[in-house]
Write a protein that binds this DNA or RNA. Structure first.
Lengths: 225, 225
DNA sequence: AAGAAGACTTGCACAATGTTCAAGAAGCAG
DNA sequence: CTGCTTCTTGAACATTGTGCAAGTCTTCTT
């Protein structure tokens, strides 16, 4: 077998590269083909459709998530580790959230992740559907928190692609948003406070905060059982 | 002015109708034009681009959210009301989550919502950035929980559009997912349990559960302050 | 080794869709 | 009526997903 034969794996891997670099909208079969060194339509022998390819890519990335050893640490530590690992993964692949909004993702990669997640919350003391729900609460929160980041990345890329100074347009857009928000008293106060503080604060402060809140809440559920 | 003159508002309203009926992928300028009774390109005089239109639509729907009277109820009740209102709104407009993944949404509608949300958590006792984070935690959770529903709706539509029996294909897809999940012990157990229980349980049980957990967690934060 | 069967690749073509643009129609001011 | 602004149209173009028939390469059989 010559070395640049197409394989489904190679296609998926290359698609992930392209998705990371260009986003969901930036992935097209022609540039994928070019990157693979073959005709665009050659891919169709290995993969049913673009949707299918996105689904494969969207499952594959779950394998990057680190699964903590549950015998070595308490459930809350394990859950924190996994949540952060999930967060990092999604930030690496900002297209994933959007893909999950249009494609029903369920493959070996995600199953592997989910299974280990369930184990954590079962270890914590949740039984049956409650373990499901506990996992879903954390999981969904992390997913949701990356939505904003995904949108920002996508936007930046779109601006860049359309030519023109992305920085400039971004700033203008922010200014416009601010102007609207300023008309509301509490948003007004918040924006001023943020500006005074010099735009500081790492974005994942809200990840920390949210996880803390949710884990506390889960412990309350366990105690009240 | 003759009665079917185009206006930005009418365009946005019609776009929302179309988005609700056909989804983000189903909205195209030609069918929008048809529905408006004008040429597809007439829209471009009122709206810069399709992206811009989606942004306008994606802000407009936030006005549907009911803002509880904060003097009449305690913060937790108010927060619950708003969370449910948000959930219902997104379910009515399943394309919104995906749109938020690609477009940075910030307009009068969302600002109105955010401002009132902030008020709730300030009333609860959170100050400054913490009120932001508290709101974001709830908000993001509700958003995330609809991701799955959105995907399901989008998928169903796609299947329907591509012809063929959507029910059938959906079932087959689920079976395939199950088959994979069955290879993992805990997922295996959960699936069997769910099947034994006869597929029951309303989907928004997880909304209830998650909100309870998060509010409990927020109260813990307040207590520990 | 020859040839047939299958596995894989290519180029062409088509349809759908966002968008531009020049030309036209409609309303309004003088 | 005339000219100016506001709005609408139709034709056209570029991009992109994908089907298809024809090619090439691999492998297996005899």
């Amino acid at each position: 077998m010559p070395r640049d034969t197409l394989t489904t794996e190679r296609i998926v891997r290359t698609a992930i590269e392209l998705l990371d670099a260009e986003g969901l909208e930036g992935l097209n079969m022609r540039s994928l083909g070019e990157r693979l060194g073959s005709a665009a339509t050659a891919v169709y022998w290995h993969v049913k459709s673009k949707d299918n390819l996105v689904k494969l890519a969207g499952d594959e990335v779950w394998n990057e998530i680190e699964l903590p050893d549950l015998d070595a640490v308490d459930w809350r530590t394990a859950a924190t580790t996994m949540a952060h690992s999930l967060y990092d993964m999604i930030i690496r692949h900002p297209w994933l959230v959007m893909a999950m909004g249009t494609h029903v993702m369920y493959g070996p990669g995600k199953s592997r992740h989910d299974d280990h997640g369930l184990a954590i919350y079962e270890k914590a003391g949740f039984v049956g559907a409650d373990a499901d729900r506990a996992m879903a609460t954390v999981f969904i929160f992390v997913l949701g928190i990356t939505l904003g980041e995904s949108a920002a990345v996508t936007l930046t890329r779109r601006l860049r692609r359309e030519g023109g100074d992305a920085e400039e347009q971004m700033k203008e857009m922010m200014a416009q948003a601010s102007e609207i928000a300023m008309r509301f008293p509490r948003l007004h106060a918040r924006i001023e406070a943020v500006q005074d503080a010099g735009y500081g604060e790492a974005p994942d402060k809200s990840l920390e905060f949210g996880l803390q809140v949710i884990f506390d809440g889960l412990e309350a559920q366990l105690a009240a059982r």
